[in-house]
Design a binder for these strands. Structure first.
Lengths: 235, 235
DNA sequence: GTACTATGCACCGTATACAGTGTGTTCAGA
DNA sequence: TCTGAACACACTGTATACGGTGCATAGTAC
């Protein structure tokens, strides 16, 4: 049966993540990290539904730590309660575009503040991440590039020296990770991203807040545009 | 004993909130709403610590629904685990200013999008909120003005037609509510706020996204400045 | 007198049990 | 054959019980 095979593969993926996290102290924390990663990596399909017992059966625990983990996942909007089942939350086309609009202003602020606050070592780190990604793109490693892209944006928020902003940026990043496709898959996009990232770092290095802000906003706006073109072909 | 009196008054305040929310179906949800409101209204003092049993004793429930509520409160950053106790999280001066920076760009985006997306009835509602606040300020009702101010900003986010942004704005609003003082208490500030709100609505009504954005950013920047002046005198 | 160790208590994390509710299925009647 | 009602089962929400860990305090030894 097709359904059973699919269930087996997801169960296997979850078991693997579980091995990775279960060494941590509290098992409720481990469950949270496991399920979170399973959802973000799309091992658990959006829209699929589970009862608390399903999940506790999968991980060999009682319902209590599962409940606690799911409670946090619901708070993160990664799961939703549908009737009396727990569903992996889906993300709509509309939401994708909405998120990009918010992401643009947050990343803009991060870049702006980084241009004012970033220390020379932090700027050096941004340059280093840029180089890493350049190498990764050259070798055509999409997954690696995707990861480095996230690291770049994370570090940009870090360099802004605004911890609240950092948390907000990370929230948004996690949402972006849930999209079914990445803009890296779009023809020529990785190269453009590299140029746009470089423009942001250049503006930061020359202590130009306005320029950095504009460069970051442009970058996200350009990503949004690619996303808009990609949307029809993705589910 | 002074400590006991303080504990009695907080217990009384919580009992009152509990009466208000306990009618809801799940008691874990009711506990969450009760404690959340208690923290935001400063009935539970920042920095004060409780064990799970303390709280379950207060509300006459077992630890289970308390744990679930606290888990969500920790996720909201309203509580933090300190060792094995639950502490009401404190907010630092630095964090206050950081939040204002983020709030500026989010409200700016909300105003910008509202200028593009808001329908005539929505604009009318903004005008109505403006009038209500004008009346409230004239009568010197600070608490009411404070509440209407929040409603204005909430509705601004709603009128942006971006539900993700709406959630983000609300997150930030909740943080602002936790500050020990409000900028409304600053001499002449309520009148200025009214003018600044009016400027935002004017720009939205004349379909001027740039103007609306700038007006909102200016508004928050001006609030931030007042906050900066007020900070030394608040704990 | 001070420092270190041991013992006891308090509290957390997890499991399990139980009650209540909602849903699905089956049977009967029209 | 279709519809409605009733019963049963499954799953959630809350309570309670238990094992383990960490901290505090007290006592003893140096």
């Amino acid at each position: 049966m097709k359904v059973d095979i699919a269930k087996d593969t997801t169960a296997a993926a979850i078991a693997q993540l579980w091995d990775q996290f279960s060494t941590l102290g509290r098992s409720s924390e481990a469950v949270y990290l496991t399920l979170r990663e399973a959802i973000l990596s799309r091992a658990l399909e959006p829209g699929s539904q589970y009862s608390e017992e399903d999940l506790s059966g999968m991980l060999g625990l009682s319902r209590t730590p599962i409940r606690e983990a799911c409670l946090r996942l619901v708070a993160d909007h990664l799961m939703v309660r549908r009737g009396r089942r727990l569903a992996i939350s889906e993300i709509s086309h509309e939401e994708v575009l909405e998120i990009y609009d918010v992401r643009a202003v947050l990343d803009g602020l991060a870049a702006r503040q980084a241009a004012i606050q970033a220390t020379p070592p932090e700027i050096a780190q941004l340059r280093w991440l840029l180089e890493q990604m350049s190498r990764s793109v050259a070798s055509g490693n999409t997954a690696e590039s995707f990861k480095l892209n996230h690291e770049f944006h994370d570090y940009l928020a870090y360099a802004s020296h605004n911890s609240f902003l950092q948390v907000q940026v990370r929230t948004v990043q996690d949402r972006v990770r849930r999209f079914p496709t990445t803009t890296f898959e779009y023809q020529g996009r990785p190269q453009t991203i590299l140029q746009e990232h470089a423009a942001i770092v250049d503006a930061i290095e020359s202590k130009d807040p306005e320029g950095a802000d504009a460069a970051a906003v442009d970058h996200i706006a350009s990503s949004r545009l690619i996303r808009l073109k990609m949307l029809p072909e993705s589910t």
